[in-house]
Simulated assay, not measured.
Amino acid sequence: MSFDVGAFLLETVPFARTIGVEFGQVNDGYAACRLPDRADLHNHVQGPHAGALFTLAESASGAAMLSALGDQLSRAVPLATTAAIHYRKLAKGEVTAEARLLADRDEVVARLDAGERPEFEVGVEIKNAEGTLVSEMTVSWTLRPNR
């Protein structure tokens, strides 16, 4: 990718910026993001609110997707179509999300080349500062061809 995916997402998705998502490594269908521990993002048990965790994971999934397919933005709009999140353990403190494209990039582009609207998934793991898995998410994405 020839552009800063994290900066692009923070500009085009202001809510991620509002809650303080920070982008780390982003390349080749992989993205790592972090959400600092902030009291204004806490829920009733003093951990990050479910909505904050969702936003962190969805942001990471978008970065992973764009790191692999961002060169297709001139001809298609990426859209999340569904997301399923599983809250496994109570999250406390800072959390990180790691997202991975679960599809073959070349197959997605070939489907787009064939005039289809490809759908594919990105898997995300959210861990606390100790590295314990606290949540998992799968986001289904599509590339809607420009017409």
Rank of each mutant, 00 (worst) to 15 (best):
L133G: 03
M137Q: 13
V122Q: 01
S135M: 03
E119R: 15
V124R: 04
P118L: 09
D113T: 10
E125N: 08
W141F: 15
N128C: 07
S135W: 03
E136V: 11
G131L: 04
R111T: 08
V139A: 12
K127A: 14
P118T: 09
G115S: 12
D113P: 09
E119P: 00
R117I: 00
V124N: 05
L133H: 06
A114T: 05
A114M: 09
E116G: 11
L112D: 07
E130Q: 15
S140Q: 13
P118G: 09
V122R: 01
K127E: 06
E119H: 10
V122A: 05
T138P: 00
M137T: 07
E119L: 10
A114H: 09
E136T: 14
D113V: 05
W141H: 11
S140K: 13
N128Q: 02
E125C: 00
G131R: 06
W141L: 08
G115K: 13
E125P: 00
E116K: 15
E119D: 04
N128H: 08
E116L: 13
V124A: 06
V134N: 04
V139N: 07
W141M: 08
R117S: 13
L112N: 05
E116P: 00
T132N: 13
P118K: 10
E121Y: 09
D113S: 08
E125L: 05
E130T: 13
V139P: 01
I126F: 01
N128T: 03
A114I: 13
K127M: 10
E136N: 02
E116R: 13
L133C: 05
S140R: 15
S140Y: 01
D113A: 08
V134R: 05
R111Y: 02
I126L: 12
V124I: 15
E136I: 07
E130V: 03
T138N: 03
V122F: 01
S135E: 09
L112Y: 09
